[in-house]
Each structure stands twice: as C-alpha cells, then as structure tokens.
C-alpha cells in the first residue's frame, strides 16, 4: 500500500469521526451518514478511475468524495453550510455535484441516471461508476438499470458496499436469494471481494474494470463492516466493537502511527478553519 492510499483511508476515518463529534456538540444541522469501516472500498476503486469517468454516490458518500477529491474543507463546508461549500450548502451531505461526481439521497435513484451517463460515455473508454448498498437492492430501479446495462452494453460499474445492514434491518430480513444470482439473471458479470486490502482489491479489479470500459457492465460486491450508526446515534446493534476493522488491523504497521497523527491533525485543522468561516450564500 502506498502512503497516499493510507493517508486517504485515515483522512476519511478522521473526517467521519470529526462529524460525529460535531453532531454530539450540536454543531451540525440535520443528519449525516458516516462510512466508518467501509473506507477501503472507495480508496481502492478510485485508484482505478480516470478523470473522464463519472461517479455516482449515495447517502453514505463522504468516503466516495474524499477518495475522488482531495477536498475535506469543501465537503465539511458543504455539510456545515459555510463559505467554500462544494454546492453552496444547498445539497449538504447527500447531494453533491462536482466534476462528473454526483450524489443523491434516494435509494436506487442513481442507477438509471448512471446508466444514462454510461450511454453518453459508451465508446469513449470512460465509464460510469455507481456506489450502492445491499439495501438498495430492494429498489426496482436497480433491476431496470441492470437490464438496460446488459442490453445496451453500457460501461457501467456498480460497486456494492454490502455491510449487512440497511439502517437497522439486517440483510436476511430484506433480501431473498443473493446479489450474485440476481446479476446472473440479467447476464451481468458479478464478482464478490473482501475489502481489507487496497492493493489486493485493485489487482483483482484492474482487468475487470478495463473490460467495463469496452461495454461489459460489472457488479462488484464488497463485504464490509459498517462500524458506525446509520445516522448519528441510531445504532441498534450489539457487538459492533468486535467487528473487524482495518484501522485496528493496520495500527501496528510501520508508519501507521505517523500517518494517523498526520490525518488527525489535518482534519482537526480543517474543522477549526471551516467552523470559523462565514455562512455560505446561495443565489437561487
């Protein structure tokens, strides 16, 4: 793993922790969904994407954004409604548009749009990458889109962050069968991967993602652990502390402590600097 990847993982981890801390202090408006425990997925996937690729994120999208753009201050300003916000503070945590990256807050809504973007990109060598969760597979839009992607040979990469829980509902109460079989039904390639090593994920995905670019859609299903609540402090699970966490696993690695301190300090200074900014302005 390069230093850059580790720095990115740690940046996301400390960013999300800082958000929960700000919420606890009553300094954030509304709600937020953190990706604690899932950081490896966007860091690994982003390394396989080019500047012309389009990224579709979701309600749990801070990691997707920070893995794509080196801009914690712009994202925090967006979440806090401060000057320099990516979208003026209008979209907030769940609704961000920047340079071919878009997130929306409705489950399954992004996949048809991503299919449209993939249709736009078809033949160019670029692809549309959409992050969804296991819970998203309850939405019919997913199946309509997979059908179109296969029918039309769309360069669509669907990244599933399967964390086993949708808000408070475990997957076994919401999904009959499994994602692999659902993909097979549409003739869409599916690969299941653990998400515990950035380099290993990339090694498997690199050739597969290349073939997406020539019009062969792919669903990549990552097994991940959601270590935080769905939204703020609404976790109903027990035993979350025992779940595997890359942060704990890597903490003894050479250079980890220094990188961790750097990321912590960076986020700390971003929080202090953004908090001090004036409110964002919106010209409707």
């Amino acid at each position: 793993m390069t230093t850059t990847d580790l720095d990115r993982l740690l940046l996301i981890r400390h960013f999300e922790r800082a958000l929960l801390d700000l919420f606890a202090k009553g300094e954030l408006n509304g709600t937020t969904h953190t990706c604690l425990g899932q950081e490896i997925v966007p860091v690994a996937v982003s390394g396989l994407l080019g500047p012309d690729d389009r990224v579709f994120s979701n309600h749990r999208g801070h990691g997707h954004y920070l893995a794509r753009f080196d801009d914690p201050a712009g994202l925090l300003a967006e979440i806090m409604g401060r000057e320099g916000a990516v979208c003026g503070g209008v979209g907030g945590s769940q609704h961000i548009l920047r340079d071919g990256y878009v997130s929306t807050g409705v489950q399954g809504e992004s996949l048809p749009v991503a299919a449209g973007a993939a249709l736009h990109l078809r033949g160019s060598g670029a692809l549309a990458c959409a992050y969804i969760g296991d819970g998203t597979w309850g939405e019919g839009a997913v199946y309509e889109s997979l059908n179109l992607a296969a029918l039309w040979g769309l360069p669509l990469l669907v990244v599933v962050e399967h964390n086993g829980i949708a808000q408070t509902t475990p997957t076994e109460l919401a999904m009959s069968g499994d994602i692999a079989a659902r993909c097979a039904a549409f003739g869409v390639r599916h690969v299941a991967l653990p998400a515990d090593d950035v380099g290993a994920v990339r090694a498997v995905l690199e050739p597969l993602v290349s073939s997406v670019r020539t019009g062969s859609p792919l669903v990549v299903e990552f097994a991940v652990n959601r270590l935080g609540p769905h939204s703020k402090g609404d976790d109903t699970r027990s035993g979350v502390d025992e779940l595997r966490d890359w942060y704990r696993d890597m903490s003894g690695d050479t250079g980890f402590a220094e990188a961790d301190a750097r990321a912590h300090d960076l986020v700390d200074s971003v929080v202090r600097e953004v908090k001090a900014r004036p409110a964002s302005r919106w010209d409707r």
């Binding site: 389009r54 878009v102 809504e109 996949l111 048809p112 749009v113 991503a114 299919a115 449209g116 973007a117 993939a118 249709l119 736009h120 990109l121 549309a128 019919g140 839009a141 309509e144 889109s145 059908n147 179109l148 029918l151």
Partner: peptide, 19 residues
C-alpha cells in the same frame, strides 16, 4: 426500451446531466 418507465426517465436525466 423495455417497459421500464423509471429507468428510461432516469437514463434521460443522466444524458441531460451529461449535457
């Protein structure tokens, strides 16, 4: 298109988003 009003409208929106 297939009989998929949701998806084909979303595809249209995706094309529009791409200009």
């Amino acid at each position: 298109t297939p009989i998929s009003e949701n998806a084909i409208t979303g595809v249209g929106a995706g094309l529009a988003l791409c200009g």
